[in-house]
């Protein structure tokens, strides 16, 4: 294997000089970041600093927003996702996303999971296996195996969120983006999701936005601190929470902000 190829396989996502504007307002300022394969990267920072905007750039969710203009490059496995030959639907299959509020479709648990694979042309006879596998990986099989036909909306909030994770896993992405996935959940459900995220990194690369610093400290390998559209500091989580190099990072994580 050549060195170049090895590098690509270590850095799953490479962001180079990314700038983003909503109309006149610049929301991301010259962000560069390398995200390693099979790691959990947490993004922290005060509300409105651009965390959600940033992760939406990683699967082109900002394409759907009017007046949004992007400069710079985002390479996933070495390929520029803003390149002309990239299909956004394929991209989002590879780069799944889980949101703050669990958003199951108003259909059965089974159909929620089968939905994506069906769209992507999965064989009907494989579906049962895919659904079971996804529910197991998202640690919700035990709770749902005897009621797969029940409406997904009958699940508790924490279960719904794990269902949404299972739905994301069902289309076999390589990267999963989480935008504050536990901020609407109780502490037990939160711990379950955290456990799950730590287990998922064996098979996936994970980027998570969280406003809970202890959560970032507990579950991530790398942490990036955003402030007013800039990536102020990015490094190993141990180091960021033990000995940050930037004053504003220190002030933010110790609560001395503003």
């Amino acid at each position: 294997m050549t060195e170049a190829v090895q590098n690509v396989s270590q850095s799953q996502i490479e962001v180079e000089n990314l700038n983003l504007w909503y109309g006149e307002k610049q929301a991301l300022k010259n962000i560069s970041m390398q995200i390693s394969k099979n790691s959990v990267t947490a993004l922290i920072g005060p509300s409105g600093c651009g965390k959600s905007t940033f992760i939406r750039c990683l699967n082109r969710m900002n394409d759907l927003i009017k007046n949004c203009r992007i400069e710079g490059r985002v390479l996933i496995e070495g390929k520029d996702i803003y390149g002309p030959d990239v299909d956004a639907v394929d991209l989002r299959k590879n780069v799944g996303m889980v949101f703050q509020k669990p958003n199951p479709f108003p259909m059965s648990i089974y159909d929620n999971i089968a939905y994506g694979p069906r769209i992507h042309g999965a064989n009907k006879k494989d579906l049962d296996g895919i659904v079971e596998q996804a529910l197991r990986s998202a640690a919700i099989w035990e709770e749902t195996s005897d009621r797969l036909k029940s409406p997904a909306l009958s699940l508790s909030g924490g279960q719904q969120q794990r269902l949404c994770i299972a739905r994301t896993l069902a289309v076999k992405p390589r990267i999963i983006l989480f935008d504050e996935p536990t901020s609407a959940l109780d502490p037990i459900s939160t711990s379950r999701i955290e456990e799950l995220i730590m287990n998922l990194k064996k098979d996936y690369t994970i980027v998570i936005v969280t406003h809970n610093m202890q959560q970032a400290a507990r579950i991530s390998d790398y942490t990036g601190f955003f402030l007013m559209g800039e990536l102020i500091e990015f490094g190993q989580t141990r180091q960021i929470f033990h000995n940050p190099q930037e004053r504003s990072t220190e002030d933010y994580i110790t609560g001395r902000f503003g």
Partner: peptide, 9 residues
């Protein structure tokens, strides 16, 4: 209080 960074040290 979960002290962090220099506070933890």
């Amino acid at each position: 209080q979960q002290p962090m960074a220099s506070d933890l040290r």
